[in-house]
């Protein structure tokens, strides 16, 4: 009558065994790949950080990672704690502190623009920036890497901390092209305002957070 036509079905235990077997083979493969590439990946990451830091702090030869928290600064081990800001301390061959590098990020035209800036502890100013990652329009937004006039803004960008050590004495500001008057202002690139503003805002945000925590403890930095 209404008997359903018998369909050939595989017993579930066979399915489970097969999938278990395949999953185990795959697991072994992944672990093997992870174990064998881990060192090379860690090494690559270190080289990448060093290269970026050396670019914004000329003359540096050694980099260590630190974290600044409201209770002081310490070498970074593991993850960055809540309220902490990660930064890199760069030293020259002789072990003299060359400067601090930290990351800044601002929302650009397409995506976050992430830059690394170099901070000189003597003049309390930013002495160079390098782009870590961005997806800005080629030919427009990427002028922040190539435009010499724009990069001059970062020869000595004033980021002094105020007397109470609570914030920057003067917030870093992006101003319209050709109207820069103070050392803490960034002259925007005409035609790439969104990207320049992203860089300015990112640096301001990062410096406001990091420098008040860092400046009172700079003397503690040793290679």
């Amino acid at each position: 009558m209404n008997e359903p036509t018998p369909v050939h079905t595989t017993p579930s235990n066979k399915m489970i065994v097969t999938m278990g077997l395949v999953a185990s083979i795959c697991g072994v493969l992944i672990v093997a790949a992870y174990e064998s590439t881990q060192d090379a990946i860690a090494n690559n990451k270190r080289i990448m950080v060093e290269r970026a830091v050396f670019k914004v702090l000329p003359g540096a030869a050694k980099v260590s990672e630190y974290v600044a928290t409201p209770s002081g600064i310490q070498a970074l081990t593991g993850n960055v704690p809540d309220g902490g800001v990660k930064f890199y301390a760069a030293y020259d061959q002789a072990g003299v502190l060359k400067g601090i590098a930290a990351e800044a990020a601002g929302k650009g035209y397409a995506d976050m623009v992430r830059v690394l800036y170099g901070y000189d502890t003597q003049c309390q100013c930013i002495i160079g920036i390098g782009v870590v990652s961005m997806r800005e329009t080629p030919g427009i937004g990427d002028k922040i890497i190539t435009d010499k006039e724009f990069l001059k803004n970062f020869d000595a960008l004033d980021v002094r901390v105020n007397a109470e050590m609570s914030a920057l004495a003067n917030a870093v500001k992006v101003v319209k092209h050709g109207t820069k008057q103070n050392a803490w202002e960034i002259d925007a690139i005409a035609g790439a305002t969104v990207t320049t503003k992203a860089v300015g805002r990112g640096i301001n945000e990062s410096a406001q957070k990091l420098l008040p925590l860092l400046v009172p403890h700079v003397a503690e930095l040793k290679p």
Binding site: M19, V22, C26, L29, I30, Y34, T37, A40, N44
Partner: peptide, 22 residues
């Protein structure tokens, strides 16, 4: 099963590319 297998090799490639060039 195929997806598990493909995903495995993609993970492998992911690690290898990271090791070759970040």
């Amino acid at each position: 099963t195929y997806i598990v297998i493909i995903a495995t090799f993609v993970t492998l490639v992911d690690y290898i590319i990271q090791a070759v060039s970040l």
